[in-house]
């Protein structure tokens, strides 16, 4: 096991890696804790005069509305994507029907289709449906990437699941609905939870489509609201970083809860990078 590995090379390597990853994150946190004047007049890498003012100011300016917008859009698209994804992925892996391979291919193609190919016609259609600048409208548009994402992840997950339990249930006389409800869904709970978290965080963090579709302050999600602060005349980075950290914390908690499954999915290309 110890063939020629110098532990100091490992240690120095890990230190450099931690600095590379950690320094920008550390800096973002310190800036979120500073007054605007401290950020520019006395730049410092240390969190001198640390204060939570930015966070307070952000929520006083109505940031909660943006958080809720992001939450509802992400939660709604996640629920729909999971229902469609579980049904379709289960059918493709376990049942037999004509066009099975074509559906599987359709999911992969949709998953790989760049959003820039889709957003212009979608914006026209959403306008015509009078859903422009609405959470319902953006939620529908998000299904274009959340449905393929969850279906593709669940396809991979179900393929790795042994069919023995389901067979036993069928032999015991359970019908398809009972088997799904009492066997498949409980057994695949970790996979479904991971698909849910991936879908949720993708929708929660999405900027490009939100920028196109959400224009008024009342409908804007977190990324749009923060990019509007950055693009404003006064670039208040303290405020932006406070908002960015508020947006990041739930994502990281969810992410590390399911890290094991996400990491396994990466090798199969099941998650976006």
């Amino acid at each position: 096991m110890t063939r020629g590995y110098n532990p100091w090379v490992t240690r120095v390597g890990l230190l450099l890696m931690t600095i590379l990853v950690g320094f920008p994150v550390y800096f973002m946190v310190t800036v979120s804790l500073k007054q605007p004047r401290d950020i520019y007049r006395e730049p410092s890498l240390l969190p001198s005069n640390a204060t939570l003012d930015n966070y307070v100011q952000l929520f006083q300016a109505g940031f909660m509305q943006n958080v809720l917008n992001s939450f509802w859009v992400a939660a709604g698209t996640t629920v729909i994507s999971l229902i469609l994804g579980v049904l379709a992925a289960y059918a493709i892996v376990r049942l037999r029907f004509p066009g099975q391979a074509a559906v599987s291919k359709l999911i992969l193609m949709s998953y790989l289709t760049p959003l820039i190919l889709l957003f212009i016609p979608l914006s026209v259609v959403i306008q015509q449906l009078n859903l422009g600048d609405s959470l319902l409208g953006i939620g529908i548009v998000y299904l274009a990437f959340t449905v393929p994402l969850s279906a593709w992840f669940l396809l991979g997950f179900f393929r790795g699941l042994s069919p023995e339990m389901e067979e036993a249930a069928f032999l015991d006389g359970a019908d398809l609905r009972q088997t799904l409800q009492h066997i498949v869904i409980p057994v695949s709970a970790p996979g479904i939870a991971t698909a849910a978290i991936l879908t949720f965080t993708m929708a929660w963090s999405e900027l490009f489509l939100a920028l196109v579709f959400l224009t008024s302050p009342g409908t804007q999600t977190i990324p749009v609201a923060l990019q509007n602060i950055i693009k404003g005349d006064v670039q208040n980075y303290g405020l932006v970083m406070a908002g960015a950290i508020v947006a990041t914390i739930p994502v990281l908690i969810l992410y590390y809860l399911t890290q094991r499954w996400v990491v396994q999915g990466v090798a199969a290309g099941a998650t976006k990078g």
């Binding site: 229902i83 469609l84 994804g85 049904l87 379709a88 289960y90 059918a91 493709i92 049942l95 037999r96 029907f97 004509p98 066009g99 099975q100 559906v103 359709l106 999911i107 193609m109 949709s110 289709t113 190919l117 889709l118 957003f119 212009i120 016609p121 979608l122 026209v124 259609v125 529908i140 548009v141 299904l143 274009a144 449905v147 393929p148 279906a151 398809l176």
Partner: peptide, 28 residues
């Protein structure tokens, strides 16, 4: 029976993907 159930299971997803991915690609 299997055919019908399988098709029924994938139908919503197929419709959504055709409407939100297939159609816009062609329209673009």
């Amino acid at each position: 029976e299997r055919s019908r159930v399988g098709l029924f299971f994938v139908a919503p997803l197929v419709l959504i993907l055709l409407a939100l991915v297939g159609f816009p690609t062609v329209a673009s």
